[in-house]
């Protein structure tokens, strides 16, 4: 503990003068602090950003402050967003580009209690499915559409209580988050049926880093430094999970967000898995054109997109990759 305080002081004072000269990057993850963003907190805490020569400020969204709005209004430099959310936002005319695709896989799934007797995804037909009110609904809805079944979507703010109390028959959950919350509320995995989107032709990558086109054009170096240092943070998180979880818990505590070690451990583990490229030789932070096209077509066919923004317009990588022909 003492050493951490000492380090904080060192960072504050030694960098105090330096940071004044360092370019600042304000980053807003698209949700409240949790292990989903562990890499950024680790990079911040371990000083990877300073090492890279940038000063990073992490701010979090709230009920009234949303990431996209914050980015568009210029309050923040970089945000993280779901790929499809970003695509629809860009499709609606936002001047926003993807500078690194951190998540490579889909963490989405429908979960039902076995007692509901829903054994196949088709059997969701006519059922009430809980879904986040705050977005991320494009892919679940696309998936259901592609199955040619009708369901009743029940918007839910964020808790699992509707699911727990049978207010809904199924719920859209994140593998790394709500699914574990259900487990931590007393349901055993063998009492639940899961339908992973990735196994139903919807393995859409999720979290990516976005900035304004203008920012990309003017501050490419700073963005590259940010993305590289963030990746370094993620790599550190992978090799030092316990320390990472402690860092995450500390951040969450500061933000008065209730949580616990077990849940954040689960989340970190799963998020790290999701970051692994589906192909062995894939690069971290890369968004392949095929993936992009696939997602775009899905959104287009389900009416979430009116037209497809060219891949090269959408993905403006700041990282350098092993081979660019992926």
């Amino acid at each position: 503990m003492t050493s951490r305080i000492v380090r904080l002081f060192v960072i504050l004072f030694s960098c105090g003068s330096l940071s004044a000269q360092m370019p600042e990057v304000v980053f807003m993850p698209h949700w409240l602090p949790q292990a989903q963003f562990a890499g950024y907190y680790v990079a911040q805490e371990k000083g990877f950003y300073e090492e890279a020569g940038i000063k990073v400020k992490i701010v979090h969204p709230s009920a009234s402050i949303m990431p996209t709005e914050s980015l568009l209004s210029g309050k923040v430099d970089v945000i993280s967003l779901f790929l499809v959310t970003a695509m629809t936002t860009v499709g609606n005319g936002a001047e926003m580009v993807n500078i690194a695709q951190m998540s490579q896989n889909s963490a989405l799934l429908f979960v039902t209690k076995k007692s509901k007797n829903i054994k196949t995804i088709q059997e969701l037909s006519g059922k009430k499915i809980g879904i986040w009110k705050s977005g991320f609904d494009e892919i679940p809805k696309s998936l259901v559409n592609s199955l040619n079944i009708k369901v009743t979507w029940v918007p839910i703010l964020s808790s699992i209580n509707m699911f727990m109390l049978d207010g809904v028959d199924a719920m859209t959950v994140m593998w790394y988050n709500e699914y574990d919350q259900i487990i931590n509320a007393g349901y055993n995995s063998e009492e639940l049926n899961t339908f992973f989107f990735s196994r139903h032709g919807c393995n859409m990558p999720e979290d990516g880093l976005y900035c304004l086109k203008n920012t990309y054009n003017t501050r490419k170096q700073d963005l590259r430094k940010f993305a590289e240092a963030s990746l370094k943070g993620w790599e550190y998180a992978e090799t030092h999970p316990e320390e990472t979880i402690e860092i995450v818990l500390e951040v969450m505590k500061k933000n008065h967000i209730p949580t616990n070690y077990a849940h954040q451990q689960w989340m970190l583990e799963k998020v790290l898995e999701l970051m692994k490229p589906p192909l062995e030789k894939g690069n971290k932070g890369y968004l392949s054109e095929i993936t992009y096209e696939k997602a775009a077509k899905k959104l287009l066919s389900n009416g979430f997109l009116k037209s497809i923004t060219p891949y090269s317009e959408f993905f403006k990588p700041v990282l350098s990759f092993k081979n660019d022909d992926q």
Binding site: V154, I156, L157, L165, G167, H256
Partner: peptide, 30 residues
């Protein structure tokens, strides 16, 4: 900004058609 229709305190008793004691929460005041 406060669409109570998606709040547990509204949505759950509405769905289950029964009275509902919410999970404990911290006061808005912080």
């Amino acid at each position: 900004n406060y669409e109570y229709f998606v709040m547990d305190w509204y949505q759950i008793p509405m769905s289950i058609q029964q009275p509902y004691w919410s999970e404990p929460y911290y006061d808005e005041g912080g």
